[in-house]
Each structure stands twice: as structure tokens, then as C-alpha cells.
């Protein structure tokens, strides 16, 4: 054990780790928001509720069907993503020609409904979800203790984020997607089913949120309001990064998580607000966001 800036290394790296964990969730959620916004031109306020649904799906799958964490990691995002597809078909598809604001209002309403129903049945108290056996325990790295599960969360979200980036930026499917974002009419003329693509994009973005929710379940308690406060921070992350770039969303997410973790060490009173303060500064200095293109 040693000290850095008068702070014990275990405390410093411990908070850095928590920062990276939070950053993983910021990155996954802002990535999903950016993907959805790119295709649908809708800011998905339901994203936080869908993250919460992912955690609840994992919890309920374990309770009622005995499906363990690893199965839930696959099944929960598919289930919640399917619900997302239904939402797109039932509600969102009627809004594409309207002002963006209506999309925000509608998804806000959906978030209220989902959260209200969850709170009605499960109360506000959290439900515990145990860490899968294979990931219990941790490594002593000398300068800090690294719990296995946390290392897994960071690694898994990095892989998923980079995988998403690869698909969108480097594959033919991604090329079609980006083309449809730029000019849907033209892409449709080439024989690509754009409405189906939009529907599946929404489903995929929602599935990303649910995936984050499953990973969050063992770390935070599973509770109805776990998504709503997180989504507001993620909005600030999105404003800071700008939604124009996939890689930008990932980098900003992880970076801000780390900054928040470090703030907890050096100036704990400000740890709740530091991301919002950074947002204000970025708006003054670079109004379009760090990775944003000027409209």
C-alpha cells in the first residue's frame, strides 16, 4: 500500500474502479440512445425504464424459471428488446413526421407507466440479486482489491460497445444503417426495407439498455427507480459527447465515469453534480459537444 496525493492507493483505485463501472453503464446507455436517435430521430426517454426492465427480467427469470445469470444475460435483452419492437410498432412509428419533442413526451409517458407499474408491484425497496458463482471473490493486485464481478462488467461492456461500433462503422449492415440515417428515401429506393430496419434498430438499442440492466442487477439493488436518475445523468453525458459519433459516446461514457469516481476521492460533496458541471462548461466552450458536428 502506498499513497498518491495524500490519498491511500486502495481508496484511489477503488473509486477509480467504481468510476469505470459507472462509466460502463453510461457508455452502454448513451450508445443505445445515440443509435436510436440516429435512426429514429427520437430521444428515448424510456431508456432508463428499459434498463430497469432488464434488471427485473433477470430477477424474475431467476425467481420463476430458475434461469441463471448467464442465461439472463442473453434472454433478458431479447425479451426487453422484443417489447421495444412492439413499442416502436404501436407508438413510435406514428411520430416520425412530427416535431422531435413529441417523441420525447411520448417516451417520457411510457417511462412513467413502466416505472409506476413496477413500483406498484415491487415497492420502492430494492431486491437483491446475487453475483453468479463463477465471478464471486476477487484478485488482490497489491495496490488494490479487484472483485471479479466488477472486472467482468467493465470487460463485457467494453466488448459490447466496441462490437457495436464495429458493426455500425465497419460492416455492410452498418453501412446500410448509416445510409438510411442520412437519406431514408434513397436507401428505400435501393430496395432496402427501411421501416423494418428502423424497428430493429430500436429493438437493438433497447436490448443494449436491458443488457446493462442485467449487468447492474448484482451491483446495485434491483429497484423500480434505478433507471430514472441514471437516465438524466446519461442525458448530460450525451450532451457532453454529442450524439453524432458512436465512438464519441463510448469514450465520453467511460471518461465521465472515471472523472466522477475521482471526484468522489478528492471532493466528495460534488460527486453527484460533477457531470452536470462539466456539461455546463462544455456548453460554454464547445456548444456542439466534444464529438459533435455543428448542425
Amino acid at each position: 500500500m502506498f499513497e498518491i496525493f495524500g490519498i491511500p492507493s486502495t481508496a484511489l483505485f477503488g473509486q477509480l474502479l467504481i468510476g469505470l463501472i459507472n462509466g460502463s453503464f453510461y457508455a452502454l446507455l448513451s450508445l443505445g440512445l445515440a443509435v436510436i436517435f440516429g435512426m429514429l430521430n427520437i430521444i428515448n426517454f424510456t431508456h432508463g425504464a428499459q434498463y430497469m426492465l432488464g434488471a427485473f427480467a433477470a430477477f424474475l427469470l431467476l425467481q420463476h424459471t430458475g434461469l441463471n445469470y448467464w442465461a439472463a444475460l442473453i434472454v433478458a435483452p431479447i425479451l426487453v428488446g422484443a417489447v421495444g419492437v412492439l413499442i416502436e410498432r404501436a407508438f413510435l412509428q406514428w411520430l416520425y413526421k412530427l416535431d422531435h419533442l413529441y417523441g420525447l413526451l411520448l417516451t417520457f409517458g411510457l417511462a412513467l407507466i413502466i416505472e409506476g407499474v413496477a413500483r406498484n408491484y415491487y415497492g420502492s425497496a430494492g431486491l437483491a440479486y446475487t453475483i453468479p458463482e463463477a465471478l464471486q471473490g476477487g484478485q488482490n493486485l497489491g495496490f488494490m482489491f479487484l472483485p471479479n464481478y466488477r472486472a467482468w462488467v467493465i470487460a463485457a461492456s467494453l466488448v459490447v460497445c466496441l462490437g457495436t461500433w464495429f458493426v455500425i462503422e465497419r460492416t455492410r449492415l452498418g453501412a446500410n444503417l448509416r445510409a438510411a440515417t442520412e437519406n431514408p428515401t434513397l436507401v428505400r429506393a435501393f430496395g432496402i426495407n427501411v421501416p423494418r430496419m428502423i424497428m430493429l434498430t430500436y429493438g437493438f438499442g433497447v436490448a443494449l439498455a436491458a443488457f446493462a440492466g442485467v449487468m447492474a442487477a448484482p451491483i446495485y439493488n434491483v429497484s423500480p427507480q434505478m433507471g430514472s436518475e441514471l437516465i438524466i445523468v446519461v442525458f448530460a453525458v450525451v450532451v457532453i459527447g454529442g450524439m453524432g459519433s458512436i465512438m464519441g459516446a463510448i469514450v465520453t461514457g467511460f471518461g465521465l465515469g472515471v472523472v466522477e469516481g475521482l471526484t468522489k476521492v478528492f471532493f466528495p460533496e460534488a460527486s453527484n453534480t460533477v457531470i452536470f458541471v462539466i456539461m455546463a462548461i462544455v456548453l460554454l466552450v464547445r456548444p456542439a459537444g466534444l464529438f459533435g458536428r455543428r448542425a
Binding site: F37, I43, H100, L101, L104, E229, I232, V233, F235, A236, V238, V239, E269, N272, T273, F276, V277, M279, A280, L283, L284, P287, A288, A295
Partner: peptide, 28 residues
């Protein structure tokens, strides 16, 4: 002054984030 630097959807997100910040101040 901060929020009008962006338009549309961003404007809504900025005002929400600033309000949340001041909520935490009110809490503390």
C-alpha cells in the same frame, strides 16, 4: 444562457440536467 446554446432535443436534455444538478444542491 447555457441551454439556448443548443436546439431542440438537446435543449430539453440540458434543462433537465441543470434542474437535476440543482436538485442535488437542494438535497445538500
Amino acid at each position: 444562457t447555457l441551454a439556448i446554446r443548443r436546439q431542440g432535443i438537446y435543449f430539453a436534455m440540458i434543462t433537465l440536467a441543470l434542474a437535476q444538478m440543482m436538485y442535488f444542491f437542494a438535497l445538500q
